[in-house]
Computed example of a mutant assay.
Amino acid sequence: MKLIGIEEHFLTPDVAQAWHAVALEARDPSVAYHQGAIGARLADLADDRLALMDETGLDTQVLSLTTPALHDLGPTSVGLAQRINDALAEAVARHPTRFQAFATLPVSQPEAAARELERCVRELGFKGTMLCGRVGAHSLDAPFFAPIWDRAEALGAPVLIHPRTPPVAVREACYAGFNPTLDAVLATAGLGWHYEAGLQFVRLVLSGLFDRLPRLQVILGHWGELVLFYAERLAVLDRFSGLDHPVAHYLRENLYVTASGMFWPEYLARAARVVGTDRLLFSTDYPYQYRAGREARRFLETCGLEGAALAGFAHANWERLCPA
């Protein structure tokens, strides 16, 4: 059975240099994660990556620029995004059955980002885009980002909301007090990333974005970034939100969920209960969650799904969401 991973990352040297130029490593400890063996795997879009895909049993990767992408860069990110997307299109053209792509956007420039999303989808054949949460003080529900959301819905292009590091004040209040390394990991991959991404989606719901753009589709990784495990609790918001529908409606009509390499059948079962099996997508979160030994294929074979539901999780749900 064909297996497509929809959250699989890369990084280019010019993006790493742009991060360094604005001293991003001083504000975002996750920048340090993109070094050593992880950095080498992020940079490779050729034979080594393909060999590791074969080893774990993945047929196709949907490539996306790793967090924090271009969110902390200013107007210069417009040209940088175009260069990244052109290079990514070339990589897909070299391996059209093995690679697909999410657009990299100059998110701090929303009008330019909307235009670049349209170019990537219509001209380059990309499937959608990935956003990494806040830009400065703006959460993704801010009216500032309306051009991006409007264009995504018009294009039928899904938007993956990826985790990024919480603001410094949040890290100091909630994740500090142990030692610098432990504080940083707790605030990022340990927990903070996932609260941050899940909250971004909840804010989109409460802002009325999906009432205004009912065909818009968002993807959350890591089995829904904790949100699905509190679906019953989120229903409390229905009494106060003034939305057209209960929160549960948006979970089933506007949200897809992917595994991000967290291969626990219990998480899959919970996600299926909340959003339905037709909204489950596969991913390995390469290279961060990469593990050898055909583990991706093994999880597909032991996850508890069968028949159409299994095929949907492996590839068909994605192909229906993003038809060729």
Score class of each variant (00 low, 15 high):
residue 92 V to E: 08
residue 85 N to Y: 10
residue 81 A to D: 02
residue 68 P to N: 02
residue 99 F to L: 13
residue 88 L to Q: 11
residue 71 H to K: 13
residue 93 A to W: 05
residue 89 A to G: 14
residue 75 P to C: 00
residue 69 A to W: 00
residue 72 D to P: 10
residue 70 L to K: 03
residue 93 A to H: 09
residue 78 V to Q: 10
residue 76 T to W: 09
residue 88 L to G: 02
residue 98 R to Y: 07
residue 75 P to E: 02
residue 88 L to S: 05
residue 80 L to T: 10
residue 96 P to N: 04
residue 85 N to R: 10
residue 84 I to D: 12
residue 89 A to F: 06
residue 75 P to M: 02
residue 82 Q to L: 13
residue 90 E to F: 04
residue 78 V to R: 08
residue 78 V to F: 11
residue 99 F to N: 03
residue 76 T to I: 12
residue 83 R to V: 11
residue 99 F to K: 00
residue 73 L to K: 02
residue 94 R to E: 13
residue 78 V to L: 10
residue 94 R to W: 08
residue 89 A to K: 04
residue 73 L to I: 03
residue 69 A to F: 01
residue 89 A to P: 06
residue 93 A to T: 09
residue 77 S to R: 04
residue 68 P to C: 08
residue 90 E to D: 15
residue 88 L to H: 08
residue 87 A to Q: 14
residue 84 I to S: 10
residue 99 F to I: 09
residue 73 L to Y: 02
residue 78 V to A: 09
residue 78 V to E: 11
residue 95 H to L: 02
residue 101 A to E: 04
residue 77 S to M: 10
residue 70 L to E: 01
residue 69 A to K: 00
residue 83 R to L: 12
residue 96 P to S: 05
residue 84 I to W: 12
residue 77 S to T: 05
residue 74 G to C: 12
residue 75 P to Q: 01
residue 95 H to T: 00
residue 93 A to V: 03
residue 76 T to K: 13
residue 98 R to N: 07
residue 85 N to H: 08
residue 70 L to C: 04
residue 93 A to D: 10
residue 87 A to F: 08
residue 76 T to N: 13
residue 93 A to R: 08
residue 92 V to I: 14
residue 72 D to E: 15
residue 80 L to K: 09
residue 86 D to Q: 11
residue 80 L to F: 15
residue 93 A to N: 06
residue 75 P to H: 04
residue 97 T to D: 14
residue 97 T to P: 01
residue 68 P to F: 03
residue 69 A to S: 08
residue 81 A to E: 01
residue 80 L to C: 11
residue 71 H to G: 10
residue 75 P to K: 02
residue 78 V to Y: 12
